[in-house]
């Protein structure tokens, strides 16, 4: 069970949260973005083994989004940041 430090509510249990993917930045303006760049933004992920930056939402809590850095091998949470 992960104990996730919500930056607004403090440490809360894993079932209160939803994973929301790796942070990505939408390229633009749309008419200047190639198919390859768009595919890269939409689909390609770093999927790191080790420290991994990821968005989470405190869905069954305050409802806020935040960014965790979490080790994907040990599941240790290295930091939690407000967006």
């Amino acid at each position: 069970m992960l104990l996730i430090p919500c930056p607004w509510c403090g440490p809360r249990a894993e079932p209160e949260f939803s994973y929301g993917g790796e942070p990505v930045i939408r390229p633009g303006p749309a008419e200047s973005v190639t198919d390859a760049d768009w595919a890269d933004y939409l689909y390609m992920r770093s999927n790191e083994k080790g420290a991994h930056r990821e968005n989470w939402c405190h869905t069954n809590g305050c409802g806020q989004w935040f960014t965790l850095t979490r080790d994907t091998v040990t599941h240790a949470i290295l930091s939690a940041e407000k967006p």
Partner: peptide, 18 residues
């Protein structure tokens, strides 16, 4: 599950999450 790790070593990314 480790395809992303190997892809990174070869210099590309995959549309995959482990």
């Amino acid at each position: 599950g480790h395809c992303g790790v190997l892809a990174a070593k070869a210099g590309f990314r995959l549309p995959i999450t482990s």
